[in-house]
Amino acid sequence: MTESLQVQLKKGVLELCVLALLSRQDSYAYELASVLAEDVGMGEGTIYPLMRRLQIDGLVKTYLVESASGPPRKYYKLTPAGRTAFAEQKEEWLDFVTSINRALGASR
């Protein structure tokens, strides 16, 4: 796989991954970034532009939680619109993967 294709793919699914993580539990950016850096190989820094966009689009909202180890943490939580977006994108992704797999299988 060329690097640019991989980068494009990761960019495309990053939002879906973040929505998926937040659908399981609220989280803060550092934690989201660590998980995604490890699982998907994303640069940790890209989480912030994404979270700003999700917040402006009304898919997530934030609240502060006191932290033992320093200043309060900004937690992100899915809004109802965020849940809907997650369900839709998940569906789309699964459809996409199914058809790609079918195509790959057929070309073998």
Partner: peptide
């Protein structure tokens, strides 16, 4: 502030 917090956490 977001990136500073990231350094704090790290």
């Amino acid at each position: 502030a977001d990136y500073s917090a990231h350094f704090d956490e790290g």
